[in-house]
Nucleic acid binder design. Structure first.
Lengths: 191, 191
DNA sequence: CGCGACGTTGATTTGCCTCAACGATTGTGG
DNA sequence: CCACAATCGTTGAGGCAAATCAACGTCGCG
């Protein structure tokens, strides 16, 4: 019943000790649609693993506008890296977009876990490498594409998400307004 | 004389064996201004460590426009993560913006090095974590800021670079045109 | 039912781009 | 050592993609 362990074992077979410790530091949480996991007040340093459902990490500007940094579904990690690994704190909100099951892991506990089981580092590293590649791609997309192209690329790559996510949030991920997205969608459907 | 080893030892003290192996897999290269390290033809999988000087990684679109992914100075790594860690290959060019000294490390050799010295993984991981945070911040900036704000933030954060980098390359990093950057600079100087 | 959240559409505005021209600087070859 | 070309930054005029502002239809839910 522990999706986190199942997921990790795709990359590394875990000893009983590791499993036990992992269970100890991870708290399962079931989330309602719209429920917040992370907000400004609770500037907890945690990482979140998604066992089922769909989550979103976003930033709010002073004038109240959302900007989505990341969506995450089953077997994805979602966390506020800016808070975790720089001096700034809690710039991101993380909310659930549906019924979700997640595992919460305190960064401090994770660090201990890593140093107790250094063989775990390699899995982590590979995950991070891919993540960096993904982010570089996203930056390229933001720099080079038009609103229409961004959306087309999004529905190609994020097929899984499409149904789960309201359009205005997709817009905020692509860096365009909901109105523009709506027009783009209209244009695409007419062709 | 080995800046790479010096740099790594800030985070982890190296055994003689590690040093020897590191030297074996890293090739020093001195670069002229304008010289390419990585281009489409040579789709080599390498990572680059900057010992001195300044480099730039960028992408070229079909219509010939540059889009800068990263600048790097002393003690930075610069690599094409998209080629290294996804199926796409060589989407980035990497060039030197000044006299530079760099270390080139084949990804394959690095992998071997990592598995021979797993204690090295932790350094790597921490580096990647910071990198992810930096990229997340950049995405936030691209999503939320105006041309002027982007430039102001850039000169704050990248003070070191300012003199080394021509303005049109800064523009291509910020996702604006050189003309717009010029107007922004004018506006700022008049206030 | 009635309210609020969401998507759409239209009218208008605007920030930035495009295109074009022109100095300033650098460097290169005769 | 100078003439010339190339590169880079700047400025102006005009255009366009996307934002803004506003209104309205629809759907789901308390």
């Amino acid at each position: 019943m522990d999706e986190l362990i199942e997921y990790i074992e795709e990359g590394l077979s875990l000893s009983e000790d590791m499993k036990r410790d992992l269970k100890e530091i991870s708290k399962v949480k079931h989330l309602e649609k719209g429920e917040m996991v992370l907000s400004e007040k609770s500037s907890r340093k945690i990482q979140i693993f998604v066992a089922s459902g769909c989550l979103r990490a976003y930033h709010k500007t002073e004038n109240g506008k959302d900007h989505t940094i990341q969506f995450a579904v089953k077997n994805w990690w979602i966390s506020d890296y800016i808070t975790l690994f720089t001096k700034q704190n809690s710039v991101l909100y993380i909310e659930s977009l549906s019924h979700s099951k997640v595992f919460l892991l305190e960064q401090a506990s994770l660090e201990k876990f890593y140093s107790k089981y250094p063989e775990f580092e390699v899995v982590l590293r590979k995950n991070l490498e891919k993540r960096v590649a993904t982010l570089q791609k996203r930056i390229l997309g933001l720099l080079t594409l038009t609103a229409k192209e961004k959306y087309q690329k999004f529905i190609e790559e994020y097929e899984v998400f499409e149904r789960l996510i309201p359009n205005y949030q997709i817009a905020s991920f692509l860096g365009i307004t909901p109105e523009s997205l709506s027009r783009v969608r209209k244009e695409i459907s007419h062709s």
